[in-house]
Design a protein around this nucleic acid. Sequence first.
DNA 1: ACAGCTTTTTGGATCGATCCAAAACGGAAT
DNA 2: ATTCCGTTTTGGATCGATCCAAAAAGCTGT
Lengths: 352, 352
Amino acid sequence: MPENVRNSSRPRVTLRDIAAHAGVSRSTVSLVMQGSELVAESTRARVQEAMTELGYVYNRGAATLRSARTATLGVVVHDIANPFFGALMAGIDETLQDADYAPFLASSGDSLARQARFLARMREHRVDALLLCPAEETPASLIETIADWGMPCIEVMRHVGPSPLGDYVGADLRAGVANAVRHLIALGHRRITLLAGTADHSADRERLAGYRQAMHEAGLDDLSRIVRGPLTRCAGREITLELMRGDDVPTALICHNDLVALGALLALSHLGLRAGQDCAVVGVDDIDEAALTDPALTSIATHPRSIGRRAAELALKRIRTPDGERERIVLEAPLMVRASSQPSLARPQESP
Amino acid sequence: MPENVRNSSRPRVTLRDIAAHAGVSRSTVSLVMQGSELVAESTRARVQEAMTELGYVYNRGAATLRSARTATLGVVVHDIANPFFGALMAGIDETLQDADYAPFLASSGDSLARQARFLARMREHRVDALLLCPAEETPASLIETIADWGMPCIEVMRHVGPSPLGDYVGADLRAGVANAVRHLIALGHRRITLLAGTADHSADRERLAGYRQAMHEAGLDDLSRIVRGPLTRCAGREITLELMRGDDVPTALICHNDLVALGALLALSHLGLRAGQDCAVVGVDDIDEAALTDPALTSIATHPRSIGRRAAELALKRIRTPDGERERIVLEAPLMVRASSQPSLARPQESP
DNA sequence: ACAGCTTTTTGGATCGATCCAAAACGGAAT
DNA sequence: ATTCCGTTTTGGATCGATCCAAAAAGCTGT
């Protein structure tokens, strides 16, 4: 049996082989691969049998060369270690798996250089589309450049320029924050401080706009306060400590995200203050942890997983119809009210 | 000007075009692309100039067809939304970017079917290697199957079978947990409970082995206790509540991971008990949050980012030398002692 | 039996790179 | 001038699929 030499990996089975084995032409086998309606049922069966029999593995690279479709797509986030983007990616992955697409992933670390390098690589790999959370300070021209490449691109969560130029999927942070402010005002709060980031990207500006708008509606412009700092739990804690020791102590904090808010909770408990009672705290993202702190954290839910799913769906759609109408999908960001802004919701004592 | 039809994206520049423009052959241009030493410096310059001038984009798909090298690799994790795997992926990404490799990512959700589908896809895309955190209940044969495909595969964090068959990168959880137990015993603890997962995979077994070993060394076999449950913050809380209300109350808890440990902290504070004082708590992973809880959480550090980096490095190496000696890289998992197991370390009050 | 259909199947040609054996070039030595 | 040898360069074949126009096969109905 020296003919059976499949020593470890060499004897690659190709379309031609199964064509011969099934007694049809390569073209026919190719049609079967593509699930074409043209081929007769009996032939299809014969071909499929040959494929399993010979252990055929489709070579997408070869197919791509001719057909310019890769069944891949590129995803760029700032920091995949951040649970928010992890959840986003999980949503993307879910949707793509069903469509038999595979995502390349890169974490830009908010570095323009890394982002650019990855995008170049994606171009060489000829991905069918791009899902992009643009790094900070990305020039608006990038989106046009990508369009010039002939590559569909969906901006996710953030967008460059004052409003999204092309396809976009995100959360309505503006309305979400405005709602949160109104909620606090209804509870009697007046001095409401916004803990914002130092960066200037769209998601940041939206929060600001929502805050300003709602404060303005209530005629509280003069009481509005915006404090900027890094967006970590640690920074949230430090900044809150400082704020609460100052003169003009706020009665409520709206934090850029939940991590910052959790830092604020730590600070309050450190000072012997009770969140919700002595100072309300609201976060953004509604991460799992929010419901489990003590007191539980009120948060504006951004549903990263859903956003990921929607973004991936839109990308697939855009691949099918590259010249279709651009879409702007903005998901609601509802306020999850919990004890940190409403003490009456404090966790009920369990029965003994 | 019907001849100037470059409507939106058609006029693809190829090797042939820059060859013509630079007055050399395709082969020469190809050599330049591959950074070969063969080509004269002056020619290289001329070619490179032509490339930028015409806006050439390398077509990796085409190159792959001939050379069987894709500069891509596949990564499988259980749940990319889990911060641990996010950090792991960040480390992988970092290393690969420098090597001009791009990773495909999939989240298996511990489903064998999803894992299998993704692996099949990776095979069709002919990735150069695989980084695999095998899903629960993955049969040991899978690793062999992948090897038969001729695809290098690095197991990460978990491995199938009693000991890794091929390349492996992980943390020394066995020693880590054993250390933690000894630490607790040194502090006078005797009734030390292990909160384990319900699954039976290698990482789980390692924790168990470390625990058993250290308890045995101290002659405490009869006091050893293993409790199994889901691995979420919420479950950690519930199980701890139950434990602390039972008869045989433990004086220390070692939790499968930090999420469970954080749940345990919640439970203790809910019961009016002080972690570290009334009951010691130790977690695994040393996520960022651990240092910031109150009291701060003692944790066994697994350094996911480093593991990701090492795994990616090993993959690149294995691609270069497919038949090299298999490696088993086990990183230390040092115990980060904090207040939750040693009250004297409680956060010092800040100066007013 | 044949024209006129529809349904299936088929052979090149092609996508854009790499591989390889052989050719061209350029100096130095004879 | 010729030979030799090391450095550069080159054309043609090739990787494994898809595309497309055209051929073959299968049906009708007359």
